[in-house]
Amino acid sequence: MECFSPPGTIQGMHIDTITPADLAWQAQALCAQTGADFFFPEPGSSVREAKRICGMCEMRPACLEYALSNDERFGVWGGLSEKERLHLRRTTH
């Protein structure tokens, strides 16, 4: 689970409410094979590499749905940055 959330985030709080089947996509995601550094860059750093990896990943729709459903505020999820997900939330609600 650590490869999907940076240390110190509240991700661990959600684990009791999500069934293992809901998280099956994470094991198949390309980010699970590359590490969190690309997906949780330092503020102001480029997310280009993370988006490139996401663009090749078949799990991208499930990842984005998960991020939106769980209000993930940090990192690149489903090929979208924090700002892009916030914009998406605002335009769909």
Rank of each mutant, 00 (worst) to 15 (best):
residue 5 S to Y: 15
residue 6 P to L: 11
residue 7 P to R: 13
residue 9 T to K: 09
residue 11 Q to E: 14
residue 11 Q to M: 08
residue 12 G to N: 09
residue 14 H to R: 13
residue 16 D to Y: 11
residue 16 D to N: 12
residue 17 T to V: 11
residue 17 T to H: 07
residue 18 I to K: 05
residue 19 T to V: 09
residue 19 T to I: 15
residue 20 P to T: 05
residue 20 P to K: 06
residue 20 P to G: 02
residue 21 A to N: 06
residue 21 A to M: 02
residue 21 A to I: 15
residue 22 D to M: 11
residue 22 D to A: 15
residue 23 L to I: 02
residue 25 W to S: 03
residue 26 Q to R: 11
residue 27 A to G: 12
residue 27 A to Q: 15
residue 29 A to R: 10
residue 29 A to S: 06
residue 30 L to T: 01
residue 31 C to Y: 02
residue 32 A to E: 02
residue 34 T to K: 08
residue 35 G to T: 01
residue 35 G to I: 00
residue 36 A to W: 10
residue 36 A to I: 13
residue 38 F to W: 14
residue 39 F to G: 00
residue 41 P to C: 00
residue 41 P to F: 02
residue 42 E to H: 04
residue 42 E to F: 10
residue 42 E to G: 05
residue 44 G to C: 01
residue 44 G to V: 02
residue 44 G to D: 00
residue 45 S to A: 14
residue 46 S to C: 01
residue 46 S to V: 08
residue 46 S to Y: 03
residue 46 S to D: 10
residue 46 S to H: 05
residue 47 V to P: 00
residue 47 V to M: 04
residue 47 V to H: 03
residue 49 E to I: 14
residue 49 E to F: 11
residue 49 E to M: 09
residue 50 A to D: 00
residue 51 K to R: 03
residue 51 K to F: 10
residue 51 K to H: 13
residue 51 K to G: 03
residue 52 R to V: 13
residue 53 I to M: 04
residue 53 I to S: 04
residue 54 C to E: 00
residue 56 M to V: 07
residue 58 E to T: 09
residue 58 E to P: 08
residue 60 R to D: 04
residue 63 C to L: 06
residue 64 L to T: 02
residue 64 L to W: 07
residue 65 E to Y: 12
residue 66 Y to S: 10
residue 66 Y to L: 10
residue 67 A to V: 01
residue 70 N to F: 08
residue 71 D to K: 13
residue 71 D to R: 06
residue 71 D to Q: 07
residue 72 E to M: 05
residue 72 E to T: 03
residue 74 F to H: 14
residue 74 F to C: 04
residue 74 F to I: 13
residue 76 V to K: 13
residue 76 V to W: 07
residue 76 V to Y: 04
residue 77 W to Y: 14
residue 77 W to P: 01
residue 78 G to H: 00
residue 78 G to E: 01
residue 80 L to R: 03
residue 80 L to Q: 05
residue 80 L to C: 02
residue 81 S to Q: 04
residue 81 S to D: 01
residue 82 E to L: 05
residue 82 E to I: 03
residue 83 K to H: 15
residue 84 E to P: 05
residue 89 R to D: 05
residue 89 R to T: 11
residue 89 R to N: 04
residue 90 R to N: 13
residue 93 H to Q: 11
residue 93 H to K: 10
